[in-house]
Computed example of a mutant assay.
Amino acid sequence: MYGVVKEGGEGGVGGYEIDGERGGVGLMKEELGDGGCRCEVRVERERKRGFRGKYDKGTGEMYEIDGEKG
């Protein structure tokens, strides 16, 4: 599962692991950059790349998805 992450003045994308046995969610990996957190996260159909559009800066970023670490 992927979502928006914010730490201090940085925002980015986080990859989360869902633990079906305990019913929890844990952060596996995050990619942070400067700027706020007002953004959108999408994952391509093949699940090889993730995309983040940052509304506050009018920019977009692409991330390679690691099959083991999100």
Results as ranks from 00 to 15, higher is better:
residue 30 E to T: 08
residue 30 E to K: 15
residue 7 E to C: 09
residue 45 R to P: 14
residue 30 E to N: 09
residue 26 G to Q: 14
residue 40 E to T: 15
residue 36 G to N: 08
residue 41 V to Q: 10
residue 18 I to Q: 05
residue 29 K to A: 05
residue 25 V to L: 15
residue 54 K to W: 00
residue 38 R to Y: 08
residue 16 Y to T: 04
residue 9 G to C: 02
residue 19 D to A: 00
residue 19 D to W: 02
residue 51 F to R: 02
residue 45 R to N: 13
residue 9 G to W: 12
residue 31 E to R: 03
residue 41 V to S: 02
residue 36 G to L: 05
residue 4 V to R: 06
residue 22 R to D: 13
residue 36 G to C: 07
residue 34 D to Q: 10
residue 26 G to I: 01
residue 3 G to D: 12
residue 51 F to A: 12
residue 8 G to D: 02
residue 23 G to Q: 10
residue 53 G to A: 10
residue 13 V to F: 01
residue 32 L to K: 09
residue 51 F to C: 01
residue 42 R to W: 12
residue 28 M to H: 00
residue 14 G to T: 08
residue 31 E to D: 15
residue 10 E to L: 00
residue 34 D to N: 12
residue 15 G to R: 06
residue 5 V to Y: 06
residue 27 L to V: 00
residue 13 V to N: 00
residue 29 K to F: 06
residue 32 L to R: 10
residue 14 G to A: 11
residue 28 M to P: 06
residue 32 L to D: 09
residue 31 E to H: 06
residue 45 R to E: 09
residue 27 L to P: 08
residue 28 M to F: 06
residue 46 E to H: 12
residue 44 E to A: 01
residue 39 C to S: 14
residue 45 R to T: 04
residue 21 E to P: 01
residue 9 G to R: 06
residue 43 V to S: 03
residue 10 E to T: 05
residue 36 G to A: 07
residue 48 K to Q: 14
residue 4 V to L: 07
residue 31 E to L: 09
residue 13 V to A: 01
residue 29 K to G: 08
residue 35 G to K: 01
residue 16 Y to G: 13
residue 22 R to M: 14
residue 29 K to H: 13
residue 44 E to D: 08
residue 18 I to V: 15
residue 20 G to N: 15
residue 25 V to Y: 10
residue 4 V to E: 06
residue 14 G to M: 03
residue 12 G to C: 11
residue 11 G to Q: 02
residue 26 G to M: 00
residue 35 G to S: 13
residue 53 G to C: 07
residue 47 R to I: 00
residue 10 E to R: 06
residue 12 G to N: 06
residue 32 L to C: 10
residue 25 V to R: 14
residue 5 V to A: 07
residue 27 L to W: 08
residue 14 G to R: 02
residue 9 G to P: 02
residue 17 E to A: 13
residue 21 E to S: 11
residue 54 K to F: 01
residue 28 M to L: 15
residue 21 E to T: 13
residue 30 E to W: 02
residue 51 F to E: 01
residue 53 G to N: 11
residue 34 D to L: 09
residue 38 R to F: 10
residue 25 V to T: 14
residue 6 K to L: 07
residue 36 G to D: 12
residue 54 K to M: 03
residue 49 R to P: 04
residue 33 G to P: 02
residue 32 L to P: 01
residue 42 R to I: 11
residue 31 E to N: 14
residue 47 R to L: 05
residue 9 G to A: 10
residue 45 R to S: 14
residue 28 M to A: 04
residue 52 R to T: 03
residue 43 V to R: 04
residue 50 G to M: 09
residue 38 R to G: 08
